[in-house]
Amino acid sequence: MPHGTIRYWAAAKAAAGRAEETFAAGTLGDLLEQVRRKHEGNATLLGVLDRSSFLVDSTPVGTRPHGEVALEPGWTVEVLPPFAGG
């Protein structure tokens, strides 16, 4: 399984208590499942993940099903919580 880094920004970073973590995952869906398991007691982070958008290697995921978004070796996933303002 390819290894890579998940980076947390803004509210996700505050909730996770760190800027990034490393995991081994083949799809974005697999990765997010692992993150949820690892942080299952952190309701704040889990809530932020539910509202966030994601970039995989600088490409927006958009509405694609997370289980269909493949992660290549050395991947980077950015967690982008919604930002206030306008």
Rank of each mutant, 00 (worst) to 15 (best):
L80W: 03
V69K: 01
F83N: 06
A24M: 02
D57S: 07
A14Y: 10
A19P: 14
T44M: 11
L55G: 03
A19F: 14
D57T: 04
G86F: 11
F83L: 09
G47K: 05
R36I: 00
G86D: 03
F54Y: 09
T44N: 09
S52G: 14
E72L: 13
S58V: 08
E33F: 11
S53W: 14
A19Q: 11
E78N: 09
E72C: 08
G47A: 08
L80T: 07
E68F: 09
T27L: 03
T59G: 15
L45R: 02
F54L: 03
F83E: 07
K38L: 15
P65R: 04
P82H: 08
P60V: 14
A10I: 05
L28V: 06
E78S: 11
S52L: 13
L71C: 04
P2A: 00
L28E: 05
E20C: 12
G86R: 05
E78G: 11
S53A: 14
A12R: 02
D57Y: 11
H66Q: 07
P73N: 02
T76D: 14
G17Q: 08
T22N: 13
A10C: 07
A15H: 04
R7K: 13
A11D: 12
D57W: 11
G85C: 04
H3E: 13
E72I: 07
L80D: 07
T59N: 15
P60W: 15
G67S: 00
K13P: 12
G29K: 01
L71H: 03
A11N: 08
P82G: 12
S53C: 14
G26Y: 01
E20H: 12
I6H: 02
W75T: 08
L45D: 00
G85D: 01
S58K: 07
H39V: 12
D30C: 05
P81R: 01
Q34C: 02
V56T: 06
P82L: 10
P2E: 00
A70W: 08
L71E: 00
W9Q: 10
A15M: 02
E72Y: 11
G47T: 06
T59H: 15
G67N: 02
S52N: 12
T27D: 01
R18S: 15
M1K: 00
T59L: 15
H3T: 09
M1Q: 01
R37V: 15
G41N: 05
H66V: 06
A16C: 10
G17M: 07
D30R: 05
L46C: 12
L32A: 04
H3Q: 11
G47W: 08
A24F: 00
G17T: 10
